[in-house]
Design a protein around this nucleic acid. Structure first.
Lengths: 235, 235
DNA sequence: CGCTACATTGACAGCGTTCAAGGTAAGTGG
DNA sequence: CCACTTACCTTGAACGCTGTCAATGTAGCG
C-alpha cells in the first residue's frame, strides 16, 4: 500500500519542501504509487560506509530516508572534490550513463530506498507523472551544481562557508537559524568548497569573531545574523 | 529531405565526434529526420550578440552549426561565471525549467539550428532514438560541468589553463596540437576558469617560458608538450 | 596616424596553503 | 574514575599564488 511505501518522516515534507528533491511521488495516484513500490527495496549504511564507489555500474536510484550522505569524486592524483551533501528526501544515482561518475559515502547512519534503475525508467514511460518528476529532480540537481560552480569560481573562503550554511538551512530537514546540525567534518566542508581544512577553521573563527555565527557545540551551528550570512552567500 | 537538414559541415563529424554533442540525429531513420526537420528553424548571431539572456523563457533548443558561443551566468553583484564554450555540433538550451538559468553569448559569427523545445520534447515521446539521444547529450553536458567543478575546486591557475587547452583540443572541430584557434578572449578564459585576466596572462607566459606551449599568433595556441599539458590538466 | 579594445607586465598586498604544534572531545581499558 | 589513545579541530608562522592597481604594449580599424 502506498501509505506504507512513503514513510511517515517523509510524508510531512511533501507540502513544505519546495527546494528538496522529495518529489518523485508528487502528483501520483495511489495506484501509481503501488506500481512504483514494486521497484523499491530498502537498504542502510553505517557512518563512513560507501553506498557505491566511483565507476560502479549504475544499477540503482536511491532516495534518502534518514541520515546524510556526501557525493564525492576522486581524481587520479588523489585529490577529492565533494559534489554535494544529500539529506532525507533527496535522490541520488539518477544518470544516463552505465556507470556512476562519483562515489557516495554515508556521513551518518543512513536508510535509503533503492529502485532498480532500469525498471524505474521503464515505469516512467508508462507513468507520466513519474517521468515529469524525474526530469524535475534532475533539473534541480543540475541547478545546484551550477550554484556550486559559481561559488568555487568566484567566492572567497568565508563567502563559500556562508553559501554552505544557507544550503544547509534550506535543504536539511529540521535546520533552523538557531540550530543547524553539521553532520559533516571540517574536511568534508573543505572538500566541498574547494578549500583546505585550515582555511575552513580560520574562516569559521573569523565569522564567529564578527558575530555572524556561533557554535554552541562543535558540530552545531547557530546563524546569528542571517541577513549578512545570506548576503555573503549570494549567488 | 534529411540530407539537406544535416548540413555538410556537420555530417562528417558523425563518425568522429565521440565527445562532441552532435548526436541528436544519431541512429535515426530518414523518416525520423524528416519529422525532426519540421521542428527546425535556422538562426544566426554576430560576435558579441546574446542568443538569449538569463531568465528568458526557455522556448528553444539550439544546435551550433558554425561559430563559438559562451554560456554565462551573472550574479547579483555582477560577477560573471562562464559555464562553458560550445562549438559546431554542440547543443544548448536543453532544460526542464521554463526559463534558461544562463545567457548565451556569441564569440564569433554563429549559425544555429533552432528547435521549438516543446515540439521537440513531444516528438521525443514518439521517436525513441531522439529521446535516447537527448538523454545522452544531457548526460555529457552534466559530466562536463562536473569536470569543471573539480577543476575550480582543486587546481592551480596553470593547471586550469591546461584543462581548457585539452578541452579545446578534444571538442573544437579542427583543433590540432600544433594549432588551436582561441576564439575567446583572455577575459572569457578567466571567467571560465575562475581566475582574473592578469593571472591568465601570467600563467600563459609561464607555460610558454617552460616550453609547454607557444603562441604563433595571439589567438592561436600551439601545444608543444602534450604529455605534460595533459598531465597538468588531469581530472 | 591615432583611436580603441585587448593583452602583458610590474609592484605590492592579501588570501589561502603548507608545515608544524597544540588543543579538544569521545571512547577504551586499567 | 582516570590515564591513554585516537580522531578531529584550532592556531601559529612562513611562504607563495593570485588579486589588485597601474602602466605599458600590441593589434585591428577607421
Amino acid at each position: 500500500m502506498s501509505t506504507i511505501f512513503i514513510p511517515k518522516h517523509i510524508r510531512p515534507m511533501h507540502g513544505r519542501l519546495a527546494y528538496n528533491d522529495c518529489a518523485l511521488f508528487h502528483d501520483m495516484t495511489n495506484v501509481e504509487l503501488d506500481t512504483l513500490e514494486s521497484c523499491a527495496d530498502q537498504t542502510k549504511c553505517n557512518a563512513g560506509d560507501y553506498l557505491f564507489r566511483q565507476n560502479a555500474p549504475s544499477d540503482h536510484v536511491y532516495n534518502v530516508i534518514s541520515g546524510t550522505v556526501a557525493i564525492e569524486r576522486v581524481s587520479n592524483n588523489g585529490r577529492r572534490q565533494v559534489l554535494g551533501f544529500l539529506f532525507p528526501g533527496d535522490f541520488l544515482g539518477i544518470t544516463n550513463s552505465a556507470h556512476y561518475d562519483y562515489a557516495v559515502r554515508s556521513l551518518t547512519k543512513t536508510e535509503l530506498y533503492k529502485f532498480n534503475r532500469k525498471r524505474l525508467y521503464t515505469l516512467a514511460d508508462e507513468l507520466p507523472h513519474l517521468k515529469t518528476n524525474i526530469a524535475e529532480i534532475s533539473s534541480r540537481i543540475f541547478n545546484r551544481i551550477l550554484d556550486q560552480l559559481y561559488i568555487l569560481g568566484q567566492k572567497k573562503a568565508h563567502e563559500r562557508l556562508c553559501f554552505l550554511f544557507m544550503q544547509l538551512l534550506e535543504r536539511l530537514p529540521g535546520a533552523r537559524p538557531d540550530r543547524v546540525e553539521l553532520y559533516m567534518t571540517r574536511q568534508d566542508m573543505a572538500d566541498y568548497l574547494g578549500l583546505t581544512i585550515e582555511t575552513v577553521s580560520r574562516s569559521l573563527a573569523k565569522l564567529k569573531a564578527d558575530g555572524l555565527i556561533a557554535f554552541p557545540q562543535l558540530n552545531v551551528l547557530q546563524i546569528l545574523d542571517i541577513a549578512k550570512v545570506s548576503e555573503l552567500a549570494d549567488t
